[in-house]
Design a protein around this nucleic acid. Structure first.
Lengths: 114, 114
DNA sequence: CTTGACCCTCACATCGGTGTCAAGTTTTAC
DNA sequence: GTAAAACTTGACACCGATGTGAGGGTCAAG
């Protein structure tokens, strides 16, 4: 599939897809004329990238962390730490967000009732 | 208390506290020499601001939403909608984050076991 | 007083992902 | 074979909260 198709399939803009590639998160083959072609599996990969980005991982961090999905060789203890610490961060983020949601819910409630 | 004290009490930098004031999120009285003074209650207000900011509310949104805590008069139906839609957004954000956490947890697990 | 710690305003810098525009090339459909 | 749609690279802009630094006041303890 070409970049427009992948964009349509994932919701990521073509600009973003090129950026992901530039950052080493995503790879593509090129047609004779230089246009990018993606395998169907790219859709899932982009979704994963999007999820991790929206969780606050940096593209550099994702670059470090993503290969371990497909490439067994790159697994190092250092990477395990990295993954765990990101997991902890996200977990904390969820907890904070729960508190904030309660605050907002309280506001809504108070607004409704009084 | 002065800005340094409030900063120490909340973890927000003095820069941020001035910014909050500039955006209309926080008010202060001034000493003769022009230095800011805050009541003790400012600590809680700043915590609230921090929570809402970290939940992804914009300072402009918070400006709209915060007054309804202290000022009954400003409550409008429009504000109710606003609050509710922010609440929904945060709720969705939490759900997304749960999925992402599961992804990360899966990576950690896979890393451990294999 | 004086001195050191604290505070003031103003302005510019930073970060990271994305938008957007320009000028040019490739692909597709008729 | 031609036009339209889609793609390419490159560069600059933006957002929004915060950092940072300059140059200059204020406050409190000695």
């Amino acid at each position: 599939m070409r970049i427009g198709d992948l964009s349509a399939a994932t919701g990521a803009s073509a600009r973003s897809l090129r950026y992901y590639e530039e950052q080493g998160l995503l790879s593509s083959s090129r047609s004779g004329g230089g246009q990018r072609h993606y395998p169907d599996s790219a859709v899932e990969r982009v979704s994963l990238i999007q999820a991790l980005l929206s969780a606050g991982l940096t593209s550099a961090t994702i670059t470090d962390v993503l290969p371990c999905i497909s490439n067994e060789a790159i697994r190092t203890p250092w990477l395990a730490e990295r993954l765990t610490s990101e997991l902890d961060r996200v977990t904390r983020q969820i907890e904070d967000l729960h508190r904030t949601r309660d605050i907002l819910a309280g506001l809504v409630d108070r607004y409704r009732v009084e």
